[in-house]
Design a protein around this nucleic acid. Structure first.
Lengths: 202, 202
DNA sequence: TGCGGAACTTGACGGTGTCAAGTTCGATCT
DNA sequence: AGATCGAACTTGACACCGTCAAGTTCCGCA
C-alpha cells in the first residue's frame, strides 16, 4: 500500500502488519478461538513458524492486535464525538455510543483487548496505546467533575457503565447485535449519567 | 444431596460432578486456558475421552461450569444482601459488592459465564440457572423503579455499572485484586446509583 | 569479497479436541 | 437363571495447535 520501495526492513514490517491484519480478519470471521498463529502465517503466505520472529508467541500477537485495535477503538469514539451534539452532555453520550458501536462492530477485538492478560499485558514496556482512548474519556468527563471530587471517580463511573453494557450486549443479553443502539435502550441506560457528579459517595 | 442409595446411574452423576469440580479447580488455579477436557479427565482418574459421554465437547463442559458457577454467584449476592443494611438502598449496594466480590474470588468462572458463547449457550433447552441471580437483582431494584419507567431499564443500569466495574477490575485496571473493595473506590462508583430512577432518558 | 546477522523454512515434540471401534458391566426381559 | 441390550468407559488414532532447534537464504556493511 505504501509507495516506498522495499528497503532493508520493509519486508519485516510488511509481514508484521500483514500478520496483524490477518489476525484481525480471523478474529472477526470466526471469533477468538479462530485466532491462530498458524492460520495467520498461512494467510500471510509464510511458514508456520514465521510469526515467532515478530511476536512473542500467541500472547505477543494478541498484544499487537490489541494495540492496533485500540487505535480503531479511539477512532470510533473520536468520530462519534465529532459528529453529534457538541454540548458537554452531548459529547459524553456520543463517545458512549461510539464505545458500544465498536463493541458491536468489533466484538472479537474488544475481547482480545480485555482478555485474560488484561490491559497490563498491552505493549509491555512500550507506549500504552490505550492512553489515547482514555484521554478522550477524560476530556469529555472533565465538565462533570465537581469540586472536591477525584476526576478518576467520574471517569470510572462512565467507563464502568458503558463497558458493562457493551460486554452484556456482546454476551447476547439483548437479542440481535445493533439492537440496543437502534431501539433506544442504550439511550435510556445512559439516562443514569444525567445525574453525573451530583451524587455523594454513600 | 438426596438420601437415595447409589442407583444405576450413580456413577454417571458422580463422574459428571467430579469433572465439573475438577474443571472449576483448573480454572481457578491456572485461568481459563488451563481448563482442558483431558486435564479434567486426568484429575477425575478416567480416560481422556470419558468426558465426551457427559458433555458435548469442551463447550458443553463450559456450559456445565457456567451453570454451577451461577449457583455460587447467586449465593454471593444473596448472602451479601442478607448481611448488610436492610434498607432498599443498603440491599442494592450489598448485592453490588457481592457481585464484585464474586468476580474477585472467582474471576475464571465469571469469564466462562460471560464467555464467547454468551448467556445464550447456557444450559441449552434446560432451566436457565441465571434466572435466579437475575431475580435477586430484580427484587432489589424494584423500590427504585419510578412510575412509568420499565423495570428492565433500572435493572440494566445497575447491572451494567457493576458488571463493567467488575470486568475492568478483572482486566487489571485497578492494581491488586480486592483493592477496589477495600479502598472504598467501588463505593464511590456506586454513588452514581444514588440518583437511580430520578433521571430522564435524554 | 567476504562476513555477520536477521528473516524465514523445515522438521520435530508434546499437548489438545474429537472421532471410531472396542470392552465391560449392570439393568432388564424372557 | 441365563441371554441380551445399552450406557459408561477405554483404547487408539487423527488433525491441529504452540513452540523449539537447526538449517538455509539473503541483504547490508566492512
Amino acid at each position: 500500500m505504501t509507495a516506498s520501495p522495499p528497503s532493508s526492513h520493509s519486508r519485516q514490517r510488511d509481514l508484521r502488519n500483514t500478520l496483524v491484519r490477518a489476525g484481525i480478519d480471523l478474529l472477526e470471521e470466526g471469533g477468538i478461538e479462530a485466532l491462530t498463529l498458524r492460520k495467520c502465517a498461512a494467510r500471510a503466505g509464510v511458514s508456520h513458524a514465521a510469526p515467532a520472529h515478530h511476536f512473542d508467541g500467541l500472547a505477543g500477537l494478541k498484544a499487537a492486535i490489541a494495540a492496533e485495535g485500540f487505535r480503531i477503538f479511539s477512532n470510533y469514539m473520536r468520530e462519534a464525538r465529532a459528529q453529534g451534539d457538541q454540548s458537554p452532555r452531548g459529547q459524553l453520550k456520543s463517545i458512549c455510543r461510539g464505545y458500544l458501536q465498536f463493541g458491536v462492530d468489533h466484538g472479537g477485538i474488544l475481547r482480545v483487548i480485555f482478555g485474560d492478560r488484561g490491559l497490563a499485558g498491552l505493549v509491555p514496556g512500550g507506549a500504552r496505546e490505550d492512553a489515547d482512548a482514555y484521554q478522550i474519556l477524560r476530556e469529555v468527563c472533565a465538565p462533570f467533575v465537581p469540586e472536591g471530587t477525584a476526576a478518576r471517580v467520574i471517569e470510572l463511573q462512565v467507563w464502568s457503565l458503558i463497558h458493562g453494557f457493551t460486554m452484556l450486549s456482546l454476551a447476547g443479553e439483548f437479542g440481535a447485535p445493533g439492537g440496543p443502539l437502534e431501539d433506544g435502550l442504550f439511550d435510556q441506560i445512559l439516562g443514569l449519567l444525567n445525574a453525573l457528579g451530583t451524587s455523594g459517595s454513600t
